[in-house]
Design a protein around this nucleic acid. Structure first.
Length: 593
DNA sequence: GCCGTTTTCGGCCCGACTGTTTTCAGTCG
């Protein structure tokens, strides 16, 4: 192993923010079972979120006694996190785990059952697992408990039929592109079939452009609410509608996605849209802040204690203004500091898709892409780009489609020829070079020097230790010819966790060496994530947004990367490929020498 | 458990729905 290369970093594997957040959530669940007041439980959940979203290593903060600098964490939680980091566990959690069987937490996740009822079932009936619960329900023993009845037995059995062990994980969510496509089809269908003049828009996590989405929220304005609610059932995408009235309708699509349509009076559209765009955490924090000003925010309006009157808002802008805030873009509504920024006028001016001037990661038929250099170049030019890097896979990609060292010279020549013959776009002969387990690259330096642009990525050996993985990555970052790191964590949304790596060390090394870190815009990746990209930029790293297109059509994936960048609070200035070619080219490592 | 242009103590977002109750607790978003 080589010398640990970065000053100030701790040469030992720290607990990740995710691990710490999970532990705090578990402790919150346990306290809830134990009958703690709801606000204490909420404090744990809030703290868990704060840790998960933190732009720095919370383990390191806790060792230094500084974790309480994070919102929602005070002296008590600072100490508990320190115990977890230094001693490996939190004493309070150990105690509660001994008190409540693990199966009880699974029971609280069943529909209709929360902590209160789970505890009741445990103390009254000795139910300590989803299996024991099924038995008790089948024997009609739930109804013997005061407050529970036959309806609940039915509901419990139905839920346990689907997941006999209890829902271990939350229901699977759709990725954003599919959710957006489905949502837009519903909007279009409702506007077409609904009463004339009906206007429908998407709210919820789709509007916030989250990585994935569990249901679709639609907000409509119409002259005939009952008729519009009824027309939801007529859409070809809709399988069934549970309830429909003048306030809206709920149903599900054939693909099993819950759909919630809410109908607003035009004068209240701003309130309703704001409420149903969420996030839940954003709304809760917004309302708490409003209460301090004597205002009570709901989906129907804003009640002012001073006048006793409720004011309604036709637009979201008005609603935010009434509580003393600047308008907050939907992508920022995650309670990650946007309320303070809106109160002090320090919200960032977010990057837009139109700001993007080039794409530095694309594939052609030379590796696993589906179009030629010329086709990709013209499509990029048609998107208004000034530059495009052709970055086919290097020799050891390992999936059969790659550019061997012997072929690379020819590939470079082809790109340069295309660059000569195609007007209006600068083509870079690049490569997506593999980072080998020891951190070296799989073309030798002599070959690499012939390239205009090098993006280095990991495609194999994901299971190395965190320290080894971090050293591997930093070795690549420090390579004098590597311009950028592609999909830095290797995650696949909903399918593969990031590999173990110390991202804070990665950000620092990238900032120090001027190596760009990619937000890969492939909607399965969006890697770096929103939280990570924000932390990377905060650490001084330059961000790059790439489509990683494997065909002409997927050049358009850029939009998902921009969505992630917006959720990361990034401005145009923080993203390298918003620069015109004359400025961008100076950021390349070979040009900076 | 956190936190402070009403507070270092006493608050802590809002509303709907459900099923079980005789006025409401628990759950959900």
């Amino acid at each position: 192993m080589r010398f640990w290369p970065y000053p100030g970093a701790v040469p030992r594997t720290e607990l990740s923010n995710t691990t710490i957040a999970d532990a705090l959530e578990e402790l919150g669940d346990l306290y809830e079972l134990d009958g703690a007041i709801v606000h204490r439980v909420l404090a744990y959940r809030g703290a868990a979120k704060s840790v998960r979203d933190a732009p720095v290593s919370v383990a390191e903060l806790a060792r230094e006694g500084r974790a309480a600098e994070l919102p929602g964490i005070g002296a008590t939680l600072q100490e508990k996190i320190r115990a977890l980091v230094e001693d490996g566990s939190i004493p309070a959690a150990e105690k509660l785990r001994a008190k409540f069987p693990a199966g009880l937490i699974a029971i609280t996740r069943l529909p209709g059952l929360g902590p209160k009822r789970a505890r009741l079932l445990y103390t009254e009936l000795g139910v300590d697992s989803p299996r024991a619960l099924r038995e008790a329900a089948e024997q009609e023993r739930l109804r013997t408990v005061r407050g529970l009845g036959p309806k609940l037995e039915e509901r419990v059995l139905a839920a346990l039929d689907e997941t006999p062990e209890g829902p271990a994980r939350p229901a699977p969510r759709m990725l954003l592109p599919r959710a957006l496509e489905l949502g837009e089809a519903l909007v279009e269908g409702l506007e077409r079939r609904g009463p004339k003049g009906t206007r429908v828009q998407l709210a919820g996590s789709v509007r916030r452009r989250a990585d994935s989405v569990k249901d679709l929220d639609l907000v409509a304005v119409t002259t005939r609410p009952a008729a519009l609610a009824k027309s939801l059932a007529e859409l070809e995408e809709i399988e069934s509608v549970g309830s429909a009235g003048t306030a809206g309708a709920r149903g599900r699509t054939h693909s099993g996605v819950p759909v919630d349509l809410r109908i607003a009076k035009p004068a209240q559209l701003g309130n309703l849209l704001q409420h149903f765009t969420g996030s839940g955490e954003h709304n809760a924090a917004l309302r708490e802040a409003a209460v301090r000003r004597g205002l009570h925010v709901s989906e129907y309006g804003i009640l002012d204690d001073a006048t006793g009157k409720t004011r309604t808002c036709a637009t979201e802008e008005e609603a935010y203004e009434l509580v003393g805030l600047a308008y907050i873009e939907p992508e920022l509504r995650e309670n990650r500091g946007e309320l303070d920024a809106a109160a002090t006028g320090t919200l960032p001016e977010l990057i837009t898709l139109e700001d993007i001037r080039g794409d530095l990661h694309s594939h052609t038929i030379a590796s696993d892409g589906h179009n030629t250099i010329g086709e990709m170049a013209r499509a990029a030019r048609d998107r208004g780009y000034e530059y495009l890097a052709i970055t086919d896979h290097s020799a050891s990609h390992g999936f059969g489609n790659d550019v061997s060292p012997g072929e690379l010279g020819r590939q470079i020549e082809l790109v340069h020829q295309a660059n000569e013959s195609i007007e209006g776009i600068e083509l870079l002969a690049g490569s997506e070079v593999n980072i080998l387990p020891d951190g070296s690259l799989d073309y030798d330096d002599e070959l690499l020097r012939q390239l205009d642009w090098i993006i280095a990525s990991m495609h194999t050996s994901f299971r190395m230790s965190e320290q080894a993985m971090t050293e591997r990555m930093i070795t690549a970052i420090e390579h004098p010819l590597v311009d950028a790191i592609g999909h830095p964590t290797g995650r696949l949304i909903q399918r593969r966790e990031p590999y173990a790596i110390d991202l804070y060390a990665v950000y620092a090394a990238a900032a120090r060496t001027g190596t760009m870190l990619e937000i890969n815009a492939n909607p399965d990746r969006r890697d770096l994530s929103d939280v990570q990209a924000r932390a990377a930029a905060t650490a001084g790293a330059t961000i790059l947004i790439d489509s990683d297109a494997h065909r002409i059509a997927t050049l358009a994936n850029m939009r998902w990367g921009v969505a992630t960048a917006r959720r990361a609070w990034l401005t145009k200035e923080q993203v390298a490929n918003t620069r015109p070619w004359s400025e961008f080219t100076k950021l390349r490592k070979q040009q900076r020498k």
